[in-house]
């Protein structure tokens, strides 16, 4: 296989890992937030705000993976 092919495979794996981790993370976050909101509807606003901020953090980590994948493709290909 050509070296570039490895880079493309690595880019795919990078996105896979990042998306998998972020998916699990956001899922757990949303589950906990929903549970909290169901138990205490009056705290719903606060929970929602905190949840969005935390979701943005998790998303940020996923995007690190995406950036690495892009770099792998465009720096080698």
């Amino acid at each position: 296989m050509e070296p570039v092919a490895y880079a493309y495979i690595a880019a795919g794996i990078a996105v896979l890992g990042a998306a998998l981790g972020a998916g699990v993370g956001i899922g757990r976050l949303a589950a906990s937030a929903l549970e909290g909101m169901a138990r205490q509807p009056e705290a719903g606003g606060d929970i929602r705000n905190t949840m969005i901020v935390a979701a943005a953090f998790i998303e940020g980590v996923a995007l690190f993976g995406e950036i690495i994948a892009i770099i792998l493709i465009f720096a080698t290909g």
Binding site: A56, F57, E59, G60, L63, F64, E66, I67, I70
Partner: peptide, 16 residues
């Protein structure tokens, strides 16, 4: 570094 990369990655990825 994470502060810089987080903003950069979020803004770039949306376009992509």
């Amino acid at each position: 570094i994470t502060l810089a990369v987080r903003l950069f990655a979020n803004m770039l990825s949306g376009h992509l």
